[in-house]
Simulated scan of single mutants.
Amino acid sequence: MLDLAALTDAVAAHGAVVRVVVAGTAGSAPREAGAAMLVWTGGQQGTIGGGALEWQAVQAARAMLAGGPDTRVERMPLGPALAQCCGGAVVWVAERWDAARLAALRPEAGMIARPLGDAGEMPLAAARLLARARGQGLRPAAQIAGGWLVEPLAAPQRAVWIWGAGHVGRALAGVLAPLPGLALTWVDIAPERFPAPLPPGVACRAAPDPADLVAGAPQGAEHLIVTFSHALDLELCHRLLAHGFARCGLIGSGTKWARFRGRLAALGHAPGQIARIACPIGEPALGKHPQAIAIGVAAAMLRDGAAETGRQEAGRQEAGA
């Protein structure tokens, strides 16, 4: 998916960047269609995977930045061309972006379509993809249609709030920050509680009483409560149950959760609502090390996201049938 916010930020920071996107695969490939990276002089962000494949694409992107063409399309058979054992092939598109080119983009129905080189007027194949996006909400992965690149815009990000900047909070922020599609807000009692430097893209908020910030959280946010204080944990659970959330997880043992259930019931919350809070978070079988907890949480979030995407896609296909 085309992440316009990330592309805009990169152009603002570096003046010109090359975006490389996987526009098609055949057989076994390191990444799926739509995987992308941004390349600028002296750095890059994201990955299209594959080791040698990515190295070749980065070199091509840097050559474009040094004065090469503004658009390049390559089909790489991974075995014959790169001696990789995947056995498949990847088509990637590299485009040079600056502020003027960004300003000319015209999204439509959550999609972006643009000619590659001098491809001319929009072909029927690309127009049909846009029509399906308008009429049925179907947004296929990035692909080349009649010399045009058609791809969906990045979906709205999942808002994730991490409450607590101790060992587990730091592990969660470090593991979750690189994952696509997440907008992380990190909360604690004081600015000095957060590490420096911060993980990229994480918004930090400090308040003497963090529970006061619950009112400003989106009602569709997901929450991970890992503070240093059981009293604060309980207050956050109490306020979040009243405020609303998509998902909520609490660090703790079975004994802690049993006590919290009783206290939350005494505060007026119904058993069904209390049961929406997951405790403990993570995968107990992985252990209690902060990074092990974070990995378990991340795995659960990825599974939930994939399941939700599958349900939405099935619903769109059923509606368009």
Rank of each mutant, 00 (worst) to 15 (best):
Leu2Phe: 05
Ala5Asn: 02
Ala5His: 05
Ala5Ser: 07
Thr8Tyr: 04
Asp9Arg: 13
Ala10Asn: 03
Ala12Gly: 11
Val17Arg: 11
Val18Met: 13
Gly27Ile: 06
Ser28Leu: 04
Ala29His: 06
Arg31Gln: 14
Ala33Val: 00
Gly34Ser: 09
Gly34Lys: 01
Gly34Ala: 12
Trp40Gly: 03
Thr41Leu: 09
Gly42Ala: 13
Gly46Glu: 10
Gly49Gln: 12
Gly50Trp: 01
Gly51Tyr: 06
Leu53Ala: 06
Gln56Trp: 03
Ala57Thr: 00
Ala57Val: 04
Val58Gln: 09
Ala60Lys: 05
Ala61Val: 09
Ala61Glu: 10
Arg62Ala: 04
Ala63Met: 01
Gly68Asn: 06
Pro69Asp: 08
Asp70Leu: 11
Arg72Gly: 10
Arg75Phe: 03
Pro80Ser: 15
Ala89Phe: 05
Ala89Lys: 01
Val91His: 06
Trp92Gly: 02
Ala99Asn: 06
Ala100Arg: 13
Ala100Phe: 07
Arg101Gln: 10
Glu108Ser: 12
Glu108His: 10
Met111Pro: 11
Pro115Phe: 07
Gly117Ser: 08
Asp118Ile: 06
Ala119Asp: 11
Ala119Met: 11
Ala119Leu: 10
Gly120Leu: 12
Glu121Gly: 11
Glu121Arg: 12
Glu121Gln: 14
Glu121Leu: 13
Met122Phe: 00
Ala125Ser: 15
Ala126Lys: 01
Ala126Val: 08
Arg128Gln: 12
Leu129Val: 15
Ala131Leu: 12
Arg132Asn: 03
Ala133Leu: 08
Gly135Ser: 10
Gly135Glu: 15
Arg139Cys: 12
Ala142Lys: 06
Gln143His: 04
Ala145Lys: 03
Leu149Tyr: 07
Pro152Tyr: 01
Pro152His: 02
Ala154Gly: 06
Arg158Thr: 10
Arg158Met: 02
Trp161Asp: 05
Trp163Met: 01
Ala165Tyr: 05
Leu172Tyr: 11
Ala173Leu: 01
Val175Cys: 08
Pro178Leu: 01
Pro180Glu: 10
Pro180His: 02
Leu182Arg: 15
Ala183Leu: 07
Ile189Met: 09
Ile189Trp: 08
Pro191Tyr: 05
Pro191Thr: 08
Pro195Cys: 02
Pro197Ile: 13
Pro200Glu: 15
Pro200Thr: 03
Pro200Cys: 13
Val202Lys: 10
Val202Ala: 14
Ala215Trp: 00
Pro218Gly: 11
Glu222Asp: 05
Glu222Lys: 03
Ile225Thr: 10
Thr227Asn: 07
Phe228Asn: 12
Leu236Ile: 06
Arg239Lys: 15
Leu240Asp: 00
His243Glu: 00
Gly244Phe: 00
Phe245His: 07
Ala246Cys: 04
Arg247Ile: 04
Gly249Leu: 06
Ser253Phe: 06
Trp257Arg: 14
Ala258Pro: 07
Arg259Ser: 14
Arg263Ser: 10
Gly268Asp: 09
Gln273Trp: 05
Ile274Gly: 05
Ala275His: 03
Ala275Ile: 02
Arg276Val: 03
Ile277Pro: 01
Ile281Tyr: 14
Gly282Cys: 03
Glu283Gly: 02
Pro284Asp: 02
Gly287Met: 05
Ala294Ser: 06
Gly296Met: 08
Val297Asp: 01
Val297Glu: 07
Met301Ser: 13
Asp304Tyr: 04
Asp304Cys: 13
Ala306Gly: 14
Gln317Val: 12
Gln317Trp: 08
Gln317Pro: 00
